[in-house]
């Protein structure tokens, strides 16, 4: 069962940052869909929490050099 989560992402300044995150997470196991919005500083991720927990998704973004926190 998949669910949508929102993650706030700090440190993105251009579209290539956003695309980078989309590509990295889009290929991850347990992620069904991802949309990163540069102007809203937000990544919306449709994931299966039993395979890839929200905290782990945020951690993956952090490891790419951004500040990421799960919203809500």
């Amino acid at each position: 069962m998949t669910t949508w989560i929102a993650i706030s992402v700090e440190g993105m300044t251009c579209q290539s940052c956003a695309k980078n995150i989309e590509e990295m997470l889009g290929n991850a196991k347990g992620v069904a869909s991802i949309k990163v919005e540069l102007d809203r500083k937000e990544a919306r991720v449709c994931h299966d929490p039993t395979i890839f927990a929200a905290r782990e998704v945020a951690k993956t973004i952090e490891e790419m050099g951004f500040d990421a926190t799960v919203k809500g």
Binding site: G11, M12, T13, C14, S16, C17, E63, M64, G65, F66
Partner: peptide, 15 residues
């Protein structure tokens, strides 16, 4: 490294 702006550079620095 494929960087396009200072933000990209910042990400590399932080990593």
């Amino acid at each position: 490294v494929a960087m396009t702006c200072d933000g990209c550079a910042g990400a590399v620095k932080r990593v």
